[in-house]
Amino acid sequence: MMNNAIKIVIVDYGMGNLNNVKNSFKKIGFDSAITHDFHEIEKATHLVLPGVGGFKDAMKELRNKDLVQPIKDVILNRNLVSFLGICLGMQLLFEHSEEFGDTEGLGILKGKVIKFNSDIVPIIPHVGWNDIAIKKNGIKEFQHIRNNSFFYFLHSYYCKPDDETITAASCFYYETFAACVKKDNIFACQFHPEKSHDAGLALLKNFVS
Protein backbone atom coordinates (compact mmCIF):
# COMPACT_ATOMS: atom_id res chain seq x y z
CA MET A 1 0.00 0.00 0.00
CA MET A 2 1.27 3.43 -0.90
CA ASN A 3 1.71 5.71 2.06
CA ASN A 4 0.31 8.77 0.46
CA ALA A 5 -2.61 7.17 -1.38
CA ILE A 6 -5.70 7.85 0.68
CA LYS A 7 -8.69 5.76 -0.25
CA ILE A 8 -11.83 6.47 1.72
CA VAL A 9 -14.51 3.82 1.43
CA ILE A 10 -18.00 4.30 2.83
CA VAL A 11 -19.73 0.97 3.36
CA ASP A 12 -23.11 0.88 1.67
CA TYR A 13 -25.42 -1.66 3.21
CA GLY A 14 -28.76 -0.12 2.36
CA MET A 15 -29.33 1.82 5.56
CA GLY A 16 -29.99 5.47 4.88
CA ASN A 17 -28.41 8.00 2.63
CA LEU A 18 -24.65 7.95 2.56
CA ASN A 19 -24.17 10.88 0.22
CA ASN A 20 -24.18 13.25 3.17
CA VAL A 21 -21.05 11.55 4.48
CA LYS A 22 -19.50 11.64 1.01
CA ASN A 23 -20.42 15.33 0.62
CA SER A 24 -18.68 16.12 3.90
CA PHE A 25 -15.46 14.44 2.81
CA LYS A 26 -15.72 16.34 -0.46
CA LYS A 27 -16.12 19.59 1.41
CA ILE A 28 -12.81 18.99 3.21
CA GLY A 29 -11.10 18.00 -0.02
CA PHE A 30 -11.31 14.20 -0.19
CA ASP A 31 -12.94 11.86 -2.64
CA SER A 32 -14.65 8.80 -1.26
CA ALA A 33 -16.36 5.72 -2.66
CA ILE A 34 -19.75 4.42 -1.55
CA THR A 35 -19.87 0.69 -2.09
CA HIS A 36 -20.71 -2.74 -0.75
CA ASP A 37 -18.17 -4.44 -3.03
CA PHE A 38 -15.78 -6.27 -0.78
CA HIS A 39 -12.87 -5.84 -3.18
CA GLU A 40 -13.23 -2.09 -2.83
CA ILE A 41 -13.62 -2.31 0.94
CA GLU A 42 -10.43 -4.33 1.12
CA LYS A 43 -8.48 -1.58 -0.64
CA ALA A 44 -9.54 1.13 1.80
CA THR A 45 -7.03 3.08 3.82
CA HIS A 46 -9.97 4.74 5.60
CA LEU A 47 -13.10 2.71 6.11
CA VAL A 48 -16.35 4.37 7.19
CA LEU A 49 -19.39 2.52 8.50
CA PRO A 50 -22.25 4.98 8.71
CA GLY A 51 -25.84 4.10 9.36
CA VAL A 52 -29.25 5.38 10.18
CA GLY A 53 -32.09 3.14 11.24
CA GLY A 54 -32.62 -0.02 13.21
CA PHE A 55 -29.86 -2.27 14.54
CA LYS A 56 -31.62 -5.49 13.57
CA ASP A 57 -32.27 -4.43 9.96
CA ALA A 58 -28.70 -3.21 9.67
CA MET A 59 -27.26 -6.56 10.77
CA LYS A 60 -29.64 -8.32 8.40
CA GLU A 61 -28.45 -6.16 5.50
CA LEU A 62 -24.81 -6.73 6.37
CA ARG A 63 -25.42 -10.48 6.44
CA ASN A 64 -27.39 -10.42 3.18
CA LYS A 65 -24.52 -8.65 1.51
CA ASP A 66 -21.99 -11.07 3.03
CA LEU A 67 -20.22 -8.17 4.67
CA VAL A 68 -20.05 -9.26 8.31
CA GLN A 69 -16.87 -11.30 8.19
CA PRO A 70 -15.07 -9.16 5.57
CA ILE A 71 -15.63 -5.99 7.59
CA LYS A 72 -14.42 -7.69 10.74
CA ASP A 73 -11.35 -9.00 8.92
CA VAL A 74 -10.49 -5.63 7.45
CA ILE A 75 -10.84 -3.82 10.76
CA LEU A 76 -9.17 -6.42 12.94
CA ASN A 77 -6.49 -7.85 10.71
CA ARG A 78 -5.27 -4.80 8.96
CA ASN A 79 -4.03 -2.24 11.40
CA LEU A 80 -3.22 0.04 8.51
CA VAL A 81 -6.89 0.78 8.00
CA SER A 82 -8.32 3.70 9.93
CA PHE A 83 -11.90 2.88 10.80
CA LEU A 84 -14.70 5.33 11.52
CA GLY A 85 -18.11 4.22 12.79
CA ILE A 86 -20.90 6.78 12.79
CA CYS A 87 -24.05 6.52 14.92
CA LEU A 88 -25.53 3.09 14.12
CA GLY A 89 -22.12 2.28 12.64
CA MET A 90 -20.67 2.76 16.12
CA GLN A 91 -23.34 0.62 17.78
CA LEU A 92 -22.87 -2.23 15.31
CA LEU A 93 -19.28 -2.68 16.51
CA PHE A 94 -20.49 -4.02 19.84
CA GLU A 95 -21.54 -7.54 20.78
CA HIS A 96 -25.26 -7.04 21.08
CA SER A 97 -28.09 -4.52 21.25
CA GLU A 98 -31.28 -4.32 23.26
CA GLU A 99 -33.09 -2.99 20.19
CA PHE A 100 -36.01 -5.31 19.32
CA GLY A 101 -35.21 -7.80 22.04
CA ASP A 102 -31.62 -8.87 21.81
CA THR A 103 -29.76 -8.59 18.52
CA GLU A 104 -26.25 -9.75 17.87
CA GLY A 105 -23.79 -7.17 16.53
CA LEU A 106 -20.38 -7.41 14.88
CA GLY A 107 -18.72 -8.02 18.24
CA ILE A 108 -15.52 -6.17 17.38
CA LEU A 109 -15.73 -4.24 20.65
CA LYS A 110 -16.85 -5.80 23.91
CA GLY A 111 -20.02 -4.38 25.37
CA LYS A 112 -23.62 -3.75 24.52
CA VAL A 113 -26.03 -1.20 23.14
CA ILE A 114 -28.80 -0.16 25.49
CA LYS A 115 -31.79 2.14 25.41
CA PHE A 116 -31.95 5.38 27.37
CA ASN A 117 -33.68 4.70 30.67
CA SER A 118 -37.14 6.21 30.26
CA ASP A 119 -37.50 6.50 34.05
CA ILE A 120 -34.71 9.08 34.06
CA VAL A 121 -34.82 10.53 30.57
CA PRO A 122 -37.98 12.52 29.87
CA ILE A 123 -37.53 12.86 26.13
CA ILE A 124 -36.35 10.04 23.88
CA PRO A 125 -34.80 10.08 21.27
CA HIS A 126 -31.85 12.22 22.23
CA VAL A 127 -32.04 14.63 19.34
CA GLY A 128 -30.09 17.81 18.80
CA TRP A 129 -26.79 19.44 19.60
CA ASN A 130 -25.06 18.27 22.75
CA ASP A 131 -21.62 19.14 24.04
CA ILE A 132 -19.10 16.38 24.62
CA ALA A 133 -16.45 15.94 27.31
CA ILE A 134 -13.22 14.82 25.70
CA LYS A 135 -11.46 12.06 27.68
CA LYS A 136 -8.63 11.28 25.30
CA ASN A 137 -7.04 14.60 24.42
CA GLY A 138 -4.09 13.14 22.58
CA ILE A 139 -5.87 11.25 19.82
CA LYS A 140 -5.73 12.54 16.27
CA GLU A 141 -9.51 12.72 15.83
CA PHE A 142 -9.78 15.49 18.44
CA GLN A 143 -6.95 17.68 17.18
CA HIS A 144 -7.99 21.36 17.29
CA ILE A 145 -11.40 20.41 18.64
CA ARG A 146 -12.22 22.21 21.86
CA ASN A 147 -13.52 20.34 24.84
CA ASN A 148 -17.31 20.85 25.19
CA SER A 149 -17.80 21.38 21.46
CA PHE A 150 -21.33 20.69 20.26
CA PHE A 151 -22.15 17.81 17.94
CA TYR A 152 -25.41 16.65 16.43
CA PHE A 153 -26.95 13.54 17.99
CA LEU A 154 -29.98 11.54 16.93
CA HIS A 155 -30.46 8.24 18.74
CA SER A 156 -32.47 6.33 21.32
CA TYR A 157 -29.81 3.74 22.15
CA TYR A 158 -26.22 4.16 23.24
CA CYS A 159 -23.10 2.03 23.56
CA LYS A 160 -21.90 0.71 26.88
CA PRO A 161 -18.37 -0.61 26.42
CA ASP A 162 -17.20 -3.25 28.92
CA ASP A 163 -13.82 -1.56 28.95
CA GLU A 164 -14.55 2.04 29.91
CA THR A 165 -11.03 3.12 29.03
CA ILE A 166 -11.95 2.99 25.32
CA THR A 167 -14.37 5.89 25.83
CA ALA A 168 -12.70 8.81 24.06
CA ALA A 169 -15.44 11.33 24.81
CA SER A 170 -18.55 11.19 26.91
CA CYS A 171 -21.85 12.99 26.64
CA PHE A 172 -24.37 13.88 29.30
CA TYR A 173 -28.08 13.71 28.53
CA TYR A 174 -29.70 12.80 31.85
CA GLU A 175 -27.33 9.82 31.72
CA THR A 176 -23.64 9.84 30.91
CA PHE A 177 -22.81 7.72 27.89
CA ALA A 178 -19.99 7.13 25.42
CA ALA A 179 -20.08 9.78 22.69
CA CYS A 180 -16.91 8.39 21.08
CA VAL A 181 -14.78 5.30 21.49
CA LYS A 182 -11.20 4.80 20.36
CA LYS A 183 -9.33 1.52 20.28
CA ASP A 184 -6.29 0.92 18.11
CA ASN A 185 -7.31 1.78 14.55
CA ILE A 186 -10.98 2.12 15.48
CA PHE A 187 -12.71 5.43 16.16
CA ALA A 188 -16.46 5.63 16.42
CA CYS A 189 -18.89 8.35 17.37
CA GLN A 190 -22.53 8.31 18.39
CA PHE A 191 -23.10 11.76 16.87
CA HIS A 192 -23.14 12.63 13.18
CA PRO A 193 -19.96 14.50 12.22
CA GLU A 194 -21.38 15.00 8.73
CA LYS A 195 -24.22 16.97 10.31
CA SER A 196 -22.18 18.78 12.95
CA HIS A 197 -21.13 21.79 10.94
CA ASP A 198 -17.55 23.05 11.53
CA ALA A 199 -16.76 20.77 14.50
CA GLY A 200 -17.88 17.72 12.55
CA LEU A 201 -15.92 18.64 9.44
CA ALA A 202 -12.83 19.21 11.60
CA LEU A 203 -13.22 15.75 13.10
CA LEU A 204 -13.53 14.15 9.65
CA LYS A 205 -10.44 16.01 8.51
CA ASN A 206 -8.55 14.70 11.55
CA PHE A 207 -9.73 11.18 10.78
CA VAL A 208 -8.30 11.34 7.27
CA SER A 209 -5.07 13.09 8.25
Binding site: N23, S24, K195, S196, H197, L201
Partner: peptide, 11 residues
Protein backbone atom coordinates in the same frame (compact mmCIF):
# COMPACT_ATOMS: atom_id res chain seq x y z
CA UNK B 1 -33.20 18.36 -1.79
CA UNK B 2 -30.12 16.86 -3.42
CA UNK B 3 -28.71 20.28 -4.17
CA UNK B 4 -29.32 21.52 -0.63
CA UNK B 5 -27.76 18.44 0.95
CA UNK B 6 -24.55 19.02 -1.00
CA UNK B 7 -24.23 22.49 0.42
CA UNK B 8 -25.16 22.31 4.07
CA UNK B 9 -23.65 20.38 6.97
CA UNK B 10 -26.43 20.52 9.50
CA UNK B 11 -29.52 18.30 9.66
Amino acid sequence: VKEISKNIFIP
